[in-house]
Amino acid sequence: MAATDATTGIIGSDAFRLHADDEQAMRQEVHHFEQPRAACIEALKIVQRRHGWVPDGAIPAIARVLGVGPGDVEAVATFYSLIFRQPVGRHVILVCDSSSCFLSGFAELKQALVTQLGIDYGQTTGDDRFTLLPVCCLGACDGAPALMIDDDTYGPVTPGDLPGLLEEYP
């Protein structure tokens, strides 16, 4: 449950401790820019790499490292589609739903994913294995329809490819 910290007034800073390595990585990243705030997106990604998502308590923690207000960090965290402010599954599937994929079998592929996983966009399977999300054009249009699972891009993918492919992500 979100709680309010009596000293900072920050909501939701429940039992989150920034890993020392992550704080170090953020402080490294700051050197690339004129102002520390610019490292905000990378800082969120650093937290997400460790936890799979960005827990509430990470927001004020990042804000402290970068010397900005937690509102500034939250504004960024909630804007960008690849920053997850809710828990996701162990593997995130990004399905390209842009025009070239739409014209090349996206609907069948998406339906097959929904059927096989039993979830729709924004949902996570009951065993916390997969989260399904749409993504804008993956730049793999000569391999449409395309999708990403974690760091891997696939295309063209047919519904028949899915059982074997998903098996690779336990």
Binding site: S98, S99, S100, C136, C137, G139, A140, C141, D142
Partner: peptide, 9 residues
């Protein structure tokens, strides 16, 4: 990210 574009990659 322009839909239909895969050249810069």
């Amino acid at each position: 990210m322009e839909p239909g574009t895969f050249k810069d990659r």
